[in-house]
Design a binder for these strands. Structure first.
Lengths: 203, 203, 203, 203
DNA sequence: GATGAATGAGCCTTCATTCAT
DNA sequence: AATGAATGAAGGCTCATTCAT
């Protein structure tokens, strides 16, 4: 190795790894994990095919790492919400808003999560998707808080509501992405969703 | 030739095609579409690999046909619900109950639908999933009816509610299947879900 | 078997075998032996796939039978030529005329012979194409006669000339078929070919 | 890293592509295109099956590329002949000599050309065999020149003669290869062929 | 670390052939 | 004899992964 490569190493966490993950998000979003080729990701990332294997054990690992990395970022964004000094109802509304905001800001990531997350948690060997559970638990925590504050009905099942809520958001987001439906703003959808979940549909 | 072979030929509703579809449901549910081999399906169906291609153009077509066939059956079951002479609220409750009942009765099919349906509607070439849209519209019709009956709040967006409702049911079902959680009965989950959607979460 | 099938059996050599051979000629001519499916031949012949195997051992055998049968017919047509009481030169001219006439009358057969004959004599196992050799020997016999009559130069190699002549006719015919060139009549080509072979190209 | 690896990199005229083409010639010559497996070619070339697909789109493309590449080489050899300052008669004799010489030097290639060329020009999709037409036109050019020099009879059809000549050479070559007939030298056959075409067969 | 040519296991699909009816 | 649904061996091709440079 020449003297020149003794050059000042960025301390920041590996640049190229991020590059590859970001490329993978885009490629997986467009083609789906199984239809996407490692070579596609490499090309999009501007690296050689082999380079990917310097940072990831294999294609599955790339997907898992992608989930982990991005889930971490997402969790960070949502976690701060919990600590806010606002009512559980307000938190729930903010949660829903933030969810749709995220979807709007990074549709590719959203697609990967929505479609591949499901495949993967079922078919990737030895992958227990803890981060996703953590994410659901943020909802759970808000609900719990609401019950503690005697805001929410104490008979509702936290377990069910967190799934119900996530499922609802997820499906609304998917269709928004799928149809490219820009007419209905996600902001408005967020409000309606919150209203229905909070007040119910009955007149 | 015995008297019995003066047959009485099975109604001939393509026996073997069904056989293959049923095998495919099981195999796809366990391994996922992309990890499942056509040979796996053939073996499970008790036919030769080539036989599958007598009934389906290719592996993709098998998945799509599976959707179409089963969706048809499902739509039939749900459609009759609409025509019943009961309130929209009752219909919605029955819809939710039926949904979970079906999930319970055919978990394999449910798994395929939940996981692969998403993949496919996005990544299978040229497949516009009309049957799924029809299914969503059954929910839509109930909501509409409820609004017409002045039962439901007329400000709610039918489009959003049908997605919200489906997403919620879907996610609850997925987790139930995934975790094999027999403790919580789906029946109870159905009631809770209906309650929340109808009455809201607020105390 | 019912009394009706005791019906008068045509004494003529199997009808259906001919039917299949004729279909095979057309199909092989259009698609080539290797690209043609047995099912294609069956469909064209208006019989079931399995029926072909009642008359032919396998696909190769169908091709060989086709050659044998048709070559027999061709040999019969050409053989009579030899016995005519005309000069060798006249015979050669008639031979050439007859060759092109045949091509004109049955282009499909011609295509099969031209293209598949070559494949087959090389790659079909255990097939010694005696009939083709007999055909070439008809040319050889005419040349021999011409030499015996002191009409043709005795120094020419009969072996070479028969190949040369056949090759020339064959290529002219192929191009005529290939290009669908109706402008140049084969009749005229026949005369020119005969002239060149007899008189040479020199001025 | 040793001094030797400061290489001197092969001119890099795709080494491996040639390797595969040469292997394909041998394999196709022995088994025929349709009976040859891609794996056979790979094994003979000493590469992995997949490597072939780095250089050729598919099996058909391998055959076509083989034609194109080799035809190019052949055309180059024959083209120089046209420019020589010798009579058209001499050129024709040299053409015939060169043709047989090439056959003798590369029998495998000759076999592939003679047998597969016919198949392919008819049955490979979208392949217009321009190089073969160019080759025929070299003969045409010589004939034209001979007519211009008042050497050849001006009434002969150039179009017919070039086919006639090629067909004759081709058939003679085929039989020589097929029978492995070493007794009759091709050199002598070349002379006889030229004599007959130039002087005719009549005494 | 980076490359990308090479690898070869694996799978979908075809189609000649069979055989129960 | 005739059928045509069923078979399953075979092979073209892909693509995740490796490794020499």
């Amino acid at each position: 190795m020449s003297v020149h490569s003794l050059r000042f190493k960025m301390p920041r966490t590996n640049n190229k790894k991020e590059l590859i993950i970001d490329a993978a998000i885009k490629v997986f979003a467009r083609k789906g994990f199984y239809n996407a080729k490692v070579a596609d990701v490499a090309k999009r990332a501007g690296v050689a095919d082999g380079t990917i294997y310097l940072y990831f054990k294999n294609k599955d690992d790339l997907l898992i790492s992608l989930f982990e990395t991005k889930m971490e970022e997402i969790l960070t964004r949502f976690s701060s919400l919990i600590e806010k000094k606002i009512s559980a109802e307000k938190k729930l509304r903010e949660f829903i808003n933030l969810y749709f905001l995220m979807i709007e800001q990074d549709q590719d990531l959203a697609e990967v999560f929505q479609v591949e997350l499901r495949q993967s948690s079922k078919f990737l060997k030895d992958y227990h998707n803890q981060k996703f559970i953590d994410f659901l638990n943020i909802i759970g925590a808000i609900i719990e808080e609401g019950i503690a504050q005697s805001l929410f009905n104490k008979n509702i099942s936290i377990h069910n509501v967190k799934l119900l809520l996530f499922g609802a958001l997820d499906e609304l987001a998917r269709q928004w992405i799928l149809t490219g439906d820009a007419s209905r703003s996600l902001k408005q959808t967020a409000n309606e969703t919150a209203d229905i979940l909070l007040y119910g549909m009955l007149k």
